[in-house]
Every structure is written in C-alpha cells, then in structure tokens.
Design a protein around this nucleic acid. Structure first.
Lengths: 345, 345
DNA sequence: TCACTTTACGCAACCGATTAACAAAATAAC
DNA sequence: GTTATTTTGTTAATCGGTTGCGTAAAGTGA
C-alpha cells in the first residue's frame, strides 16, 4: 500500500508522457503554441491520473488568489448574512471564493483578522467595521498595502480612500417620520441606540429634521437611546409609560426594539397602531411574522452585498475606480403604522 | 514615485542586513539555532520594512493552508449561520480561517464548489449536503483524495467513511410528542415536509412511535406533509379546519410552520395552547419573539458547529479518528404547549 | 595545544505551478 | 538546395517561503 499517494502534478503528467512540464502547463491552459494532438494527449493523461491543479501554487505564481475576504460583526444577524449572500452570489458568478470572518464587534479581533487577511490570502476585502467605528487606522494600513477595500453599512467613508456602499440612514429616518406625519401623527418619539454611533445618529437626524420641518417642537424625553434589541425596546417603552406622557407614534431605529415596544404596549392594554403607531428599521424577517406586522425601512441588504462585490471585482479586474454608493432606503408600510389619526381622534 | 512598491519579503530583509534568507526565516520563527542578538536585529528590520509573511508561499511549501471549507445550503438561515458561528468560534481559537460556500440546495453548484475546494484551497471540509441528499459520489471523491470531511445535520453517514455531527431527529420528535402526551393531549397531529427527506422522516417516526407506544391509533389525515414554511403551516391548518376534525395538539417539524398554524388558529378564534397546543422544531429565534412563545426542539446549532470543527481540527492536527456524534435534542417548553389538558377539559 | 562538542548561520533543494527566451524541427519561399 | 518563417517544445528562472545538511567559529575539557 502506498504510504502517501501524492497528488499528481503537471510533472507527473510530463514524466508519464516523456515531455516537459511547461508543455503540459500550456496544453492545459489551451495555449496556442501547443499542437492539438498533444493537447488531446495531455488532457487525456491528466484525466487518467485524476490531475487537479494546485491552486496554492497558481496563487503564488500569479500573485492572485481569486478569493475576497468579507468581514462582518456577526454572521448570525439577518442583515449581515443577507449582505454576505449578495456578495457570495456575485462572487460565484465571477468564480471567486469568499472568506468570511466575524469581528464580533471586537476591535482586537478585528485587528487580528485584518492582519491575517492582509498576508496574501485575499485579493480584496469587503468590511463592515466593528463598533466603536471611529478608529480606522487598521484599514488605512490596508490601503497602504494597496489591498482594495470596500466598506458597507458602517464606517465613516470620508476618512480614507476606499469604496463604500451604504443605505442613506438620514433619508430613511426622515421618510419613516414623514410617513407617520402624513398619517396625522404629531407627537412622534424616537427609540434608538447611542447617538455616537454613526448609523444611530443619522437616523436620529432624519427623525429630528422631519419633525422640525413640520414645525413640531421636540422635547428631550422624546428620544431614548438605550439600545435597539427587544429588551431595550420594552425598557424604553416602560420608561415612557411610567412617565405617562404618551406619543402618537414611535420611530424605532431597529426592528427588535420596535417588537419589544409593541409587546410592552399590548401588555399594557394599548393598541398598535390605533393608540400608538410604530415604524422600525431594517426590514427584518420577523416584521412579517408577528402580529401586527411591523412597518420598517428596508436596507436592501442583498443588493448592498452584490453592489459591494461588483465594485470590488471591477476594481480588481479592470482597475475601475472605487466609488461611494448610497442606496435609497425604501419604506415598507405594514400594519403597525397603517392608521390615519386624522379620522379617528 | 515607485511604480509598484513590491511587498517586502524575507530576501529584502536578508539583503538589507547582509545575511541569508534562511537565517531570516528561522529568526522569524524563533528557531533555537539563531542567536538572540540576531533575532532582535532581524525582527527590528522586519518591522521597519513592514514585513508581512506571504501565507500563500507558506501554504505551498508546507502543504497546509490553515483554512477549512464550510459548505451549507444557505447561509441566510438561522440554523446554518449558527452552525457556522460555532465553526468560526473554534477556528478562530485555533487560528484557522473559514471559507464559506453556499450550495443553494443545488447539486450542480455543490459539485462545482467541492471541486474547487478540493484543489488545495482548504485542509478539510465541513458540509451539510444539498437536497436531494442521496447522491454522495462527489463526497466519495474527496475521501479518495484524502481530504478530511465532516458532515453535519443532513447526510446519510453510513454511506462513506467520514465524521458527522447531527441531532437525533427521531428522539426529538419522540420527546416533543411525549411532552404533549404528558400534558394530557391524546389526538396529536403532525405537520411536516416530504417524508422522503431524512430529517422529516425521522421526526415523523419519533411522532408515530410516541403515539403508538401510548396505544393511540393514528389516522391518515393526522399527518400533513406540505412543507415547513409559514404559509404551508397555514395551509395545512386550514385543511384540517375545513375538515372539522380538530386535534388536541400539533407537533410541527419546523418552527415557521408552527407559527403559521398559530396565526391561522387565532384568526379562526381558537386559542393556543388552551384549545390546541403546539410544539415546533429548531428553536428559531422567533419562538421567543412571538406571542404565544413557541415550544420547540433545540438543535444546539452552535454546539453542532463547534463540535464538527473540533473533530476536523483534531483529525488534521493529530490524525485523530473521525467519529459520528449524535447530539441529544433538548425540548424548550414555552407558552404554546404549556397547558394541562387533564385539568380543564 | 589538540580533539570534540555546541552554537550559529549559509547553501541549495523544494513546494507546483507560470512564462520569457531560446532552440529544434517542419514548412514555405526563392 | 539553401535560407527564411512558422510551428512546437524545452530550459530555466521565478513566486516567497521552509528545511536538511554542511561547516566555520566559539566553547569545553584534558
């Protein structure tokens, strides 16, 4: 029994045929300088020996890996896994592989991953930076190393010279509130996460401006910035309920917060949307799973991923310039905000 | 301006220091046969020149990539993304990278991906086979090529000589029904997908045996095998409602089906669990998001992933033998089945 | 001072491909 | 029949590391 039946290389084929390895290499690439008869012979032998090119050797020689890295905070969240799906879709079409890494929103982990990726494993990187998203020095290093880079979702793009794809959070917030205003809601609260984080801040600004454009005066307690998970949603709602000053509607910067709010309201005998209308953000699948279904701002995550991938591949293959793409968010009106307050007081 | 500031290699360091490249290589590996003074010198120079080892070259030389491939039907489903998280967690700990691919449950795509992965890009593979899961010849090829392989979730393990991690679907089904029986339910229906598929069949068998062990006679219409998405759940429930022969409880082979069933029941004025108790399968996050919360069988997906990864890494590093692991499923009792039918008739 | 071990480092082969440059054979041109 | 041209292959360098083997220098003991 052979101890180790080494994988066959072009040298094995060459030896078996009594020719040189370079001829084999060229024949397998369908090079013009090899006669058809030889090509046929070589291809047959290759099949016979079950030859598989060693991609690592090819990568080393060509300096390309046909692999891109995708760095996300967490693969487990619908938004990110959808983006990845978009990336993967485009990558599969173009015959690239996708190396996926999770930063877990941990800067140390992010740094380690980026350092690893920058050692020649990938041709380019698509990333959503870990919170807090202020320190981008690691990414600047990548740029110095001339590794093509595309950000999506998070990241303050102006900082460094790379591509980006993001949804317009400001516009998303603005249009969510505009929709609520058009339904006759005046007193519209906003539940979000810490406003230092870019996405929360932008959604907040959209909310604020929409109200101010309508001449509505905002009070401090209208904004709650606990966090955007379900439990925080309940907590923020509870705080408002205890205070006793109820709004017409609430614009939540995340769908899970919206869900928590709705549950808290229902347990307190309040109806959604009749008593209080709700709009969330992200268009998570649960929005259509629960009752009432939740109105939300769609971030087109799949499209975001495929656009980011397209940009990266174009840059890799034809040196096309990176750009900053902003996707217009789309409002999905569902039951939680479908109620005209001007009719039924 | 330098046209292309080539990345620095160990040769650049060697040249700058007037020593040989092998010394540099050894110093950077902290080899014992290099004096500390030299090591220090070399490390400093490396830092100065911003040296990064070229992993592709290392891979070629060592024959290892420190990368494993994970093949799943779809990254976007919670179960799979959780498994991947488990894999990734273990991989990160051991300094491996994870290459993720989606078969989209398409056999052609699966074949192309496996062929690609087998060309030296990864050291081993973790996979959940695409439906229909009968043809495993592609995987047999991997075994021939001596690429370590671990299946999870799907795949008929007996077929070929590889590792596997799976939840015991039979036991899961059995214990779900047992729980319903203990609560006084007798007439327990089963909603699932096509029984040719291994997982559905096993859950079905668990349901059937649990009832038979109790001496309950099953009737044909007690089993519906439309599919396990929400809409199918509603559809199957509607069929039963129209027929008029209502059960005490329903064991659904999937949580989304369970959700659809619950919504359909509520819209028809029936209460869950008071009128009909429901148990789902998979322990999806929505189970705790909706009201009533849904009882479900937990598949421990994260653990499944980390176990699969652990097995693969152990095999890669110490040639440890592959094994077949079966995880005992855990029943999570929530509101949808928390009701004792023996008390309140 | 001589023989012997250690320590520290260099030489060169190797991993498996690609490809520039060159050479031999076959064909065409005169 | 000799030269020019095309066709078809070969040789060898290269990508950027790793590592077995050899050896000079330094250290040790008698």
């Amino acid at each position: 029994m052979t101890e180790k039946s080494k994988k066959t290389s072009i040298y094995d084929i060459a030896k078996a045929l009594g020719i040189s390895a370079s001829t084999v290499s060229r024949a397998l690439q369908n090079h013009t300088s090899i006669s058809d008869s030889r090509k046929e012979l070589i291809r047959e032998k290759a099949k016979e020996l079950n030859y598989r090119p060693n991609l690592v050797a090819v990568n080393l020689k060509t300096g390309k890996t046909r692999t891109i890295g995708v760095l996300v905070p967490n693969i487990n969240r619908f938004f990110f896994s959808s983006v990845i799906e978009g990336v993967e879709d485009e990558a599969y079409r173009r015959n690239y592989d996708v190396l996926i890494c999770q930063s877990k929103d941990n800067k140390d982990r992010e740094e380690k991953i980026l350092s690893n990726l920058s050692q020649g494993k990938v041709d380019g990187i698509i990333a959503s930076v870990a919170y807090p998203d202020n320190n981008l020095s690691m990414y600047e290093e990548l740029v110095d190393m001339e590794i093509p880079l595309v950000f999506f979702d998070r990241a303050s793009v102006d900082a460094i010279q790379v591509g980006s794809v993001r949804v317009d959070d400001y516009k998303g917030g603005y249009s969510a509130v505009k929709h609520l205003l058009l339904q006759g809601n005046k007193k519209i609260f906003h539940f979000s996460g810490p406003l230092e984080v870019t996405v929360w801040r932008n959604r907040y600004r959209g909310w604020r401006d929409a109200l101010e454009d309508e001449g509505i005066e905002i009070q401090d307690h209208w904004v709650q910035t606990e966090s955007t998970d379900k439990e925080s949603g309940r907590k923020m709602m509870r705080a408002i309920l205890e205070r006793g000053d109820l709004p017409d509607a609430i614009f939540c910067a995340g769908d899970y917060a919206a869900l928590g709010v709705i549950q808290e309201l229902r347990e307190n005998g309040l109806r959604v949307p009749e008593d209080i209308a709700i709009v969330g953000f992200a268009n998570e699948p649960i929005d259509e799973m629960v009752r009432p279904t939740i109105s939300s701002i769609c971030q087109s995550s799949f499209r975001m991923g495929s656009l980011a991938a397209k940009m990266l591949f174009d840059n890799l293959e034809t040196k096309e310039a990176m750009v900053n793409i902003t996707i217009a968010p789309e409002l999905k009106v569902r039951e939680s905000s479908f109620f005209d307050r001007r009719v039924k007081k």
